[in-house]
Design a protein around this nucleic acid. Structure first.
Length: 170
DNA sequence: CCACGGTGGTAGA
DNA sequence: TCTACCACCGTGG
């Protein structure tokens, strides 16, 4: 459980598509936000960030760039799931098993975690995922092999899948 | 209890 | 293929 007083650290990740914003708790990476405005990137000066967080961030930056390039993420920083419900954590853990280049349907994920009829709830759990890219919710498609939805915007989902060569290309 | 989704499956046109 | 409809389920109000 995460108490409200816990301190968080935010660091940007510049990319050709804008700056992602990573947020860290004492447990690890707890959120990874897509670039917002042209330049909404801002946070705490690097010097005020604990060494531990800086080393985690190094892993995050490399992982994000890898995924954006369609490569396997590589070594990930510890992920802080604490904000999720039991069900959501199960879903996220399952998503983490989907390797680059693979895709699954919401229903398949539901079956994999022992809730065969919860496909729709799985979709909701994907939407609640605060660490997209590293918890690859973009690799989950509708059963008819169509795109389905994506909280970060379908353009992103399409782009990521194209890079991973997991999308026919419409 | 109710309403709402990043669903899935079926039936018709 | 596309639309309409409905069963299903975890979450949040």
């Amino acid at each position: 459980m995460k108490n409200a007083a816990e301190q968080l650290f935010q660091l940007g990740i510049p990319t050709p598509k804008g700056a992602f914003l990573a947020t860290y708790s004492a447990e690890g990476l707890c959120s990874l936000a897509f670039p917002r405005g042209p330049q909404a990137a801002r946070g705490v000066p690097q010097t005020e960030v604990p060494a531990q967080v800086r080393s985690w961030h190094t892993l995050t930056v490399a992982s994000v760039k890898n995924v954006l390039s369609g490569r396997p993420a590589g070594k990930l920083p510890p992920l802080d799931y604490a904000s999720g419900t039991e069900f959501q954590r199960n879903v996220w853990a399952e998503l983490s098993r989907i390797k680059s280049g693979q895709t699954r349907s919401y229903g398949e994920v539901a079956r994999a975690i022992g809730h065969p009829k919860a496909a729709r709830a799985v979709g909701a759990a994907c939407g609640a995922n605060r660490i997209p890219l590293l918890i690859p919710c973009h690799r989950v498609l509708a059963s008819n092999k169509k795109l389905g939805g994506f909280s970060g915007g379908l353009d992103w989902k399409r782009l990521l899948l194209l890079r991973e060569r997991s999308w026919p290309g419409k």
